[in-house]
């Protein structure tokens, strides 16, 4: 049906691809490491240029809509308008980038991580099921394989491979990832694995008898010499727990702090802190912090009252409110609780 040449070329290409697949699947570094690195460098360069060209157009979806109205205006005005629009877009993007960088610096400062900041250049296609991104920091910046990648919210992933100026990061939610994690506030540890969905992770506790409640946060347990995961990085909070205490395995669903779909600026931890920062990097008590502060201000009411009696005039009015507020609320509670009983007797 087809000519000899066609058949020969087809068979040759087929054998070549199979050879590549088999050699690559042998695992470890493989024979393609240097070749892949060179190819990645070339394509990564293209991606870098592409990212530069396309960055003004990302998120400017309504740009074309306004373009039609401006066509009938004077050409010079239109050009100037576009230029200003681009400038505004860019400054908004810059501001957002600065905010992300601020968050990253706060995390790195509190946890004493030494980081290299980087920006996302490209994202792996969704139909390959892998959650990977390319960042614009590489060997030349001190990035190496198996380093933790964080952002202002928490753990993002780890470095999978590095070229001179780019690195590939496997995100936390990738199904092939597993991280040793510790429940903040207790010393319970477990293994966290990605599910391939961007907003849920699975956490399996080592001690099935330990308690775990929705709302508790997880931090990384840390690996030897901080690779691939540095200790104390916030990961996410418990959304739901399946199974009861004492069951053979308990799986909890975790929502990661870092939103992998809106990544911008990330940081690669090139040196972990000398001592484990424990839970200090976690965001300020996400579990009902206002409810916790209100009773504590009301309970020690004897002391403010005593001080109020000592200095009556100016501060009395200020202190009168906390002293006054519990009394009506207690009355309301007392009034509210007997009502059903009286209703029942009548």
């Amino acid at each position: 049906m087809f000519s000899r040449r066609t058949r020969f070329v087809l068979v040759a290409l087929f054998i070549t691809t199979l050879t590549f697949v088999i050699l690559d699947l042998r695992g470890g570094q493989g024979p393609f490491t240097s070749f892949r690195s060179a190819m990645s460098g070339a394509v990564g360069g293209g991606e870098q240029v592409g990212s530069l060209i396309f960055s003004p157009f990302l998120g400017v979806a309504n740009w074309w809509g306004t373009w039609g109205d401006q066509r009938d205006r004077i050409a010079g005005l239109t050009a100037e308008n576009d230029e200003l629009r681009l400038l505004v877009e860019r400054s908004a993007a810059d501001r957002e980038r600065a905010e992300q960088l601020d968050g990253l610096l706060r995390v790195a400062g509190v946890g004493r991580y030494e980081i290299v900041p980087a920006e996302i250049l490209a994202v792996g296609p969704a139909q390959e099921f892998a959650w990977t991104v390319t960042i614009d920091a590489g060997n030349a910046d001190g990035v190496q394989r198996d380093m933790s990648v964080i952002n202002g919210q928490g753990l993002v992933g780890r470095v999978q491979s590095v070229t001179k100026n780019t690195a590939t990061v496997v995100l936390l939610v990738d199904a092939s990832i597993s991280v040793g994690a510790r429940v903040a506030g207790s010393s319970e540890i477990g293994i966290l694995s990605g599910t391939g969905r961007q907003d849920s992770l699975e956490f399996q506790m080592i001690d099935p008898g330990a308690g775990l409640d929705p709302g508790q946060s997880l931090v990384t347990f840390g690996s030897k010499r901080g690779r691939p995961y540095s200790p104390g990085i916030p990961i996410g909070e418990v959304v739901s727990v399946a199974g009861t205490a004492g069951q053979l395995t308990r799986i909890a669903t975790i929502r990661p702090f870092a939103d992998v779909s809106t990544l911008g600026v990330v940081g690669v931890v090139i040196r972990p802190p000398r001592e484990d920062p424990r839970d200090s990097v976690l965001p300020d008590a996400p579990r009902a912090s206002p409810a916790a502060t209100v009773p504590s201000s009301i309970l020690p009411s004897p002391t403010p009252l005593a001080s109020a009696s000592a200095s009556p005039t100016p501060s009395a009015s200020a202190i009168a409110t906390p002293a006054a507020s519990p009394a009506p609320s207690q009355e309301v509670e007392r009034a509210a609780t007997p009502e059903p009983s009286t209703g029942g007797t009548n």
Binding site: T16, T17, L18, T19, F20, V21, L23, D24, L25, F32, F35, R36, M39, S40, V43, G44, E47, L121, A122, V123, G124, P125, E128, A130, T132, V133, T134, Q160, S161, T163, T166, A167, T168, V170
Partner: peptide, 11 residues
Amino acid sequence: FAPSTAGPIGV
């Protein structure tokens, strides 16, 4: 071979 993909080479 592109740096942002991670599947086995050749597929």
